[in-house]
């Protein structure tokens, strides 16, 4: 691994001062950062460790019912936390399926939200990429996924982004110029080279999930397509949120990842569920309409290492099954 200096701040202010310097990168779990440094995809001069900063830790239920999760909370902790499982079921399920057990013990929610996009032509060693002649995302000028493509289509591969989109999560960033809050829907953009609307010096402090309006039942589930039952990144991820009042779906949201650079909100698919009955034949019909709408919107390309055609065909299946799982209070959908 190429060398760097390690800084270990204990406050957000110290951290953002360090991160403001050119060539600085933050490390929390390190599960993505270090492989990327080993692959010479990232070449930081300074790595700023976040583990010593109290403010970034822990899960709290705020007085207004907002669930506030510190950015360096581990995925294992998120997956196992009772309040997360209850109030953000799909998030807990998604966190429980990231990579394998050790990586969930190490990896953090913030790291997953800000995960670099992934591509079979990118997440490789320097030697491999040199033999290829590099690519659009790093050191090169050609896209190998879409020939003659001018826009990088490396895939958002962060499982937790999909449920957080459906839950209208809000992100708190700190920088050396102050703090700001950003709805997660505004964080991502369709550029695989850098899919975050975030300045390099900005530090994710907390992720907040707003409370549910009273009288609503919030249901959720996550579906993850991958070939193995562990370790692998998603070939497709689908999160579902259903808000139910009196057996009627009053609000629905779907999020999908691992298709293109940006985690997608599937609004047309969600619209097929809104105002539908939450059980019986009416629900069944709405689920199928939702899956069909999702299939029209989801077009996997050969970015991540997996069978693109299969991923495309699995999209409506996973949407359908994940909606059903949300309603049934089961899930995650995995291994189908």
């Amino acid at each position: 691994m190429q060398g760097f200096d390690l800084a270990t701040p204990t406050t957000v202010d110290e951290a953002v001062a360090l991160l403001a310097r050119e060539g600085s990168l933050a490390i929390a779990g390190g599960t993505d950062l270090l492989p990327n440094i080993k692959h010479e995809l990232f070449e930081p001069r300074t790595v700023v460790a976040l583990g010593g900063i109290e403010e970034l830790r822990g899960i709290e239920l705020e007085s207004d019912g907002t669930l506030s999760i510190g950015a360096t909370t581990t995925l294992a902790h998120v997956a196992a936390h009772d309040e997360v499982r209850c109030r953000a079921t799909a998030l807990a399920q998604a966190a429980s399926l990231v990579a394998g057990p050790q990586l969930r013990t190490m990896g953090t929610l913030g790291g997953n939200v800000l995960l670099d996009t992934r591509c079979q032509w990118y997440n490789q060693s320097y030697f491999w990429r040199q033999s290829l002649g590099f690519c659009l995302k790093k050191d090169g000028s050609v896209c190998h996924v879409i020939e003659s493509g001018s826009k990088c289509v490396a895939a958002a591969s962060n499982d937790t982004a999909a449920p957080l989109l459906t839950l209208d999560a809000e992100l708190e960033f700190a920088s050396n110029t102050g703090r700001r809050r950003l709805p997660i829907a505004e964080l991502y953009k369709s550029d695989g080279v850098a899919n975050l609307r975030k300045e390099p010096g900005e530090l994710l402090v907390r992720v907040r999930i707003p409370a549910l309006e009273t009288g609503r039942e919030r249901l959720g589930a996550y579906g993850k397509l991958r070939e193995r039952g562990s370790i692998d990144f998603p070939l497709l991820g689908v999160a579902v949120r259903l808000d139910v009042v009196d057996d009627r779906i009053v609000h629905a949201a779907l999020g999908a990842i691992a298709l293109q650079a940006r985690p997608l909100a599937l609004q047309k698919a969600a619209a097929a569920l809104i105002d539908a009955p939450a059980s019986g034949p009416g629900f069944d019909d709405a689920v199928l309409a939702c899956a069909a709408a999702a299939a029209r919107q989801l077009h996997p390309v050969a970015n991540v290492p997996g069978d693109a055609q299969w991923r495309k065909e699995m999209a409506p299946v996973y949407v359908r099954e994940t909606v059903r799982a949300a309603r049934a209070g089961t899930g995650p959908v995995h291994g189908r």
């Binding site: 394998g100 079979q120 070939e227 193995r228 039952g229 562990s230 370790i231 692998d232 990144f233 290492p305």
Partner: peptide, 10 residues
């Protein structure tokens, strides 16, 4: 990672 060998659960 990409040469996918079966894990315990597979």
């Amino acid at each position: 990672l990409d040469y996918r060998m079966a894990t315990t659960v597979d």
